[in-house]
């Protein structure tokens, strides 16, 4: 039996990678979306582990809903990117800086 802390460390590492991916990434918004997805997957991992160790189904049901919400979220993210691209002809993070002050 693998102890629970190992799983938790793994999910924390995934979460940190996702956060780093968001903040370090200076190029493409699509990569940003991927990092967000990774973040939510690491959280799902957390829920599944807890659900498993508590022998409770709630965790897994929670994961189901989170997956749905994240899919809707990335759909909206893609839509916003499309609008942004039509306006700016670019989806580079560096080109976003019109609002300052």
């Amino acid at each position: 039996m693998i102890p629970m802390s190992y799983y938790l460390i793994l999910s924390s590492i995934l979460f940190s990678i996702a956060l780093a991916g968001i903040f370090i990434n200076r190029k493409n918004i699509i990569i940003l979306l991927m990092s967000l997805e990774l973040m939510f997957l690491s959280i799902n991992f957390n829920f599944i582990i807890f659900g498993n160790f508590l022998s409770d189904l709630t965790g897994q049901i929670f994961v189901f809903f989170v997956l749905t919400v994240v899919a809707a979220e990335s759909a909206i993210g893609l839509a916003i990117i499309v609008v942004l691209f039509r306006n700016k002809k670019s989806i580079n993070v560096d080109d976003i800086g019109g609002l300052k002050g």
């Binding site: 997956l67 749905t68 899919a71 990335s74 759909a75 893609l78 839509a79 499309v82």
Partner: peptide
Amino acid sequence: YLVAILFIIFDLEIAF
């Protein structure tokens, strides 16, 4: 991207 947006929605339908 439009196709991707539409795909995601119906993809999840199957998951349920």
